[in-house]
């Protein structure tokens, strides 16, 4: 099955599934995969911290990095994924030109992610973050292969 993950959303799947997310701007795309169980998930989170809008976070934890990431791991564990085998990769977290702190939502998303992972002893295996270009992610759950497309150029993550 092919699942499209929209903004503020998360999907998990298994061998044979393809997870796709489009238009990562400042948002974080986080992909986790257990190669042995061949299960994984993709989170497309918009904002760093849920305290900005607890009501929204309760209705949809995937809008925020701090509530979405634990939920992503939980759902992949539910499918048989194991923490010690889990591979985590990040994409997105871009930002507009200039140096205005206000618009560094992407960097704040990334920082919150790193803190969360660090606290849980998980390392990022690869990342394609920052810059002003929009990104699309194709995540093949049969192989764990992740392809990032950006402005017509494709690369493996």
């Amino acid at each position: 099955m092919r699942y499209v993950v929209v903004v503020a959303d998360m999907k998990v799947g298994k061998n044979g599934d393809m997870l796709v997310t489009h238009a990562l701007g400042s948002c974080l795309g986080l992909m986790v995969y257990d190669p042995e169980a061949q299960v994984g998930g993709l989170l497309h989170a918009m904002l760093p911290l849920s305290r900005i809008n607890p009501e929204k976070a309760a209705a949809n934890p995937f809008m925020f990095v701090d509530t979405g990431v634990p939920e992503l791991f939980k759902k992949v564990y539910d499918l048989g994924g194991q923490k010690k085998r889990m591979i985590a990769k990040a994409a997105g977290c871009g930002r507009p030109l200039g140096n205005d702190e206000l618009f560094k939502i992407g960097e704040r998303n990334y920082t919150v992610l790193k803190k969360l992972l660090w606290k849980n002893n998980i390392l990022l295996d690869a990342e394609d973050v920052g810059g002003a270009a929009s990104r699309t992610v194709h995540f093949d759950l049969s192989t764990g292969q992740i392809i990032i497309s950006s402005n017509g150029v494709k690369r493996d993550l």
Partner: peptide, 21 residues
């Protein structure tokens, strides 16, 4: 700028714009 950042209608131009301080 905010709408592009959250990925709504962000295409080829990406976030390639400079918000004015």
């Amino acid at each position: 700028v905010l709408s592009l950042m959250i990925g709504i209608g962000v295409g080829r131009e990406g976030l390639q714009h400079e918000p004015s301080p």
